[in-house]
Write a protein that binds this DNA or RNA. Structure first.
Length: 626
DNA sequence: CCCCCCCC
């Protein structure tokens, strides 16, 4: 093991944020498990380039197996294929994302050279044999013996079976009794011999096994239609040849859903293969798989680093502007803020849906809203402004551009990928205080550029000449009053027609526009609202959707209240007052009774985010005092 | 066997 040359000086360069040579060779002097977010272990490394040593290096968590498998041990020499440096709490940290082992620690057996501890370390570095330095206890303390490398497939005891006897088998430790019609589990030899690449899956290839990494697992979904009802889940898997989707129904859900873990590799055999319906399947594969009663899923226990992990093809937020609606893209951004979880009712199915809006920002200084659904929305609660990476988010052109998660999308919080580390560094240093523009909703560019912020007094001064288009402005205002009368009106029930109908007094309603009389109508909102800030106040109209946001209920329920439970309706109005909003208004001159008057209409409305608003004010102050 | 991907 003589003559191993470390890349001297690389640590100094990395610490000084200078360009580092490609593929530097360094030695691991020790490592230490540290507590980490998300319950996942993280390893801090004590590394040396022969000149300096440094204990603020981190192993990307996808490389944890290298520690668990004793590949990284004391004195192991590695070639760093990929790493990033960040400054965290005034310390430079090296994050090693990819490495190759040059020589095993047990073969090297000693520290190479006489490295000096870098920088702020106040004490001399211990140099005793068999110790790893303060930050890195001896590896003998931590790892358990690695599984035998020669093992191709796991032993029968780790078999996740293909029938319901499984639990009793595990409980009693008895050999499995196959029920009559079922085939016995595949032997290890059968398994290993029949593994084919995912790319080669087709309906005629029987008795094959794939060895695949699960990169996404959807929520359990229930359905009920004329053909029956049931539950199902889908997952996406990949190997180095391709990707494929697999769906499990009913009892397969019970059997496999909890067992299958995202990012783990499994041997899967005895599935059924059918054509992929391209309109609902975003994978590149022509076929998709289903679990059968006979399907066998076996965790891959040996080293699975040859099976690729989820890879992204990120589009910057700025560039999402140019992506067509309905396309799916990968995106990574900082979760600048997020909304409460809301319950809405699907127009198509009548089902209640949970949703939450997340605002993402990246180095292009653009923001975009991402809508998340269901359990993901309910459970999302992370105030640390985490990095969010999404595989296959759907682009929509609602309110500018926005993103929405699909069942087949995958959201990852603080993924251990270089883009995320770089973004983190940017946001913590500069990004958090930057004035950014949103592609979604209020403040976005479009329709003649971003709307300027105006105080109420300034808004009142505006004399709009353009009768057609009008002027747009943003304002931070408090809701002072809502006129109760005419807040709700009965509108024509015809799709797309929202005209006010005439109550004929006989249970029928007439729409002049449609020339139709029906017993039906829909309740719609048209709120006359008074808004104020410290300079002045003005009246503005909030139609349907914005009215629902302000009053916090559906127009249907509000209409019922308005007609039948007047005091309840008054209470709703009272409750809505004195909320603060950031609102985008349109001001326009309108002719009414031979008089030209300026009218304000709400075009976008958001409850104020005080933290966000204060940041903007601070940025404004900085800019104007610079 | 789902096949909806929602709401403003």
């Amino acid at each position: 093991m003589a003559n191993i040359q470390l890349t001297r000086g690389i640590i100094g360069k990395a610490m000084r944020d200078e360009e580092v040579p490609a593929q530097p060779i360094i030695q691991i002097l020790g490592f230490k498990k540290i507590s980490a977010q998300g319950g996942q272990d993280r390893y801090r490394l004590h590394v040396s380039d022969g000149e300096f040593s440094h204990s603020f290096a981190m192993l990307a968590t996808q490389l944890n197996h290298l520690v668990h498998d004793n590949v990284i041990e004391q004195f192991t020499v590695v070639k760093v294929e990929k790493m990033v440096c960040n400054t965290m709490n005034n310390k430079r940290i090296m994050i090693i994302l990819q490495l190759d082992v040059v020589a095993q620690g047990r073969d090297v057996g000693a520290k190479i050279g006489n490295p000096v501890s870098w920088g702020e370390t106040p004490h001399p570095e211990p140099t005793g044999n068999g110790t790893n330095g303060r930050s890195a206890p001896a590896p003998t303390a931590a790892p358990t013996p690695a599984p035998a490398k020669a093992m191709n497939a796991p032993s029968g005891s780790s078999f996740y079976g293909s029938n319901s006897n499984n639990k009793s088998m595990n409980g009693g430790g008895k050999p499995q009794q196959s029920p009559k019609s079922q085939r016995p589990p595949l032997s290890n030899q059968e398994l290993a011999g029949s593994v084919i690449p995912i790319r080669d899956i087709n309906p005629y290839a029987n008795r094959v096994t794939i060895r695949a990494r699960v990169v996404n697992k959807g929520e359990i979904k229930t359905w009920s239609n004329s053909r029956g009802e049931g539950k199902l889940f889908s997952m996406e898997m990949l190997d180095d040849s391709g990707e494929i989707r697999m769906t499990g129904f009913n009892q397969s859900v019970d059997q496999y859903y909890d067992m299958i873990e995202v990012n783990h590799v499994y041997y899967i055999s005895r599935f059924s293969v059918k054509n992929a319906n391209k309109s609902f399947n975003s994978t590149a594969h022509d076929y998709e798989l289903s679990f059968t009663n006979d399907t066998q899923v076996i965790p891959c226990l040996e080293d699975d680093s040859d099976v690729p992990t989820l890879s992204y093809n990120f589009v910057t937020i700025e560039n999402i502007e140019n992506v067509e609606a309905e396309k799916t893209i990968d995106v990574v951004g900082v979760c600048k803020h997020y909304s409460d979880c809301q319950t809405i009712v699907s127009r198509n199915t009548g089902k209640e849906l949970k949703k939450r809006e997340i605002t993402l920002i990246d180095q292009t200084c653009k923001e975009i809203n991402l809508t998340i659904w269901g359990k993901t929305a309910e459970d999302f609660c992370d105030d640390s402004q985490p990095i969010i990476a999404v595989k296959a988010a759907k682009v929509s052109d609602f309110n500018g551009k926005s993103l929405s998660l699909l069942q087949s999308s995958a959201l990852h919080i603080n993924p251990d990928i270089s883009e995320a580390h770089v973004l983190r560094g940017w946001f913590d240093k500069d990004g958090h205080s930057i004035i950014s523009q949103s592609l979604s909703g209020a403040g976005r560019v479009g329709g003649g550029g971003p709307a300027p912020f105006k105080l109420a007094a300034e808004a009142n001064e505006v004399t709009t000449v353009d009768m057609e288009k009008g002027d747009y402005f943003m304002s931070k205002v408090t809701l002072m009053a809502i006129k109760r009368d005419n807040a709700v009106y009965k509108a024509c029930n015809t799709d797309k027609c929202n005209k006010k109908v005439m109550d004929l007094g006989n249970g029928m309603y007439r729409c002049e526009k449609c020339s139709k009389e029906t017993p039906n109508y829909k309740s719609r909102l048209m709120l006359n609202c008074n808004f104020a800030d410290f300079t002045d106040n003005f009246w503005a109209t909030a139609f349907q959707d914005h009215g629902e946001s302000i009053l916090g209920d559906t127009s249907e329920k509000l209409g019922d209240m308005f007609d039948n439970r007047s005091d309840e309706f008054d209470a709703v109005i009272k409750e809505a007052l004195f909320s603060q909003y950031i609102i985008k208004f349109r001001s326009r001159m309108e002719n009414y009774n031979n008089e030209t008057r300026k009218k304000f209409t709400i075009v976008d409305l958001n409850k104020i985010n005080h933290a966000e608003y204060c940041k903007q004010l601070l940025a404004d102050i900085r800019e104007s005092s610079a």
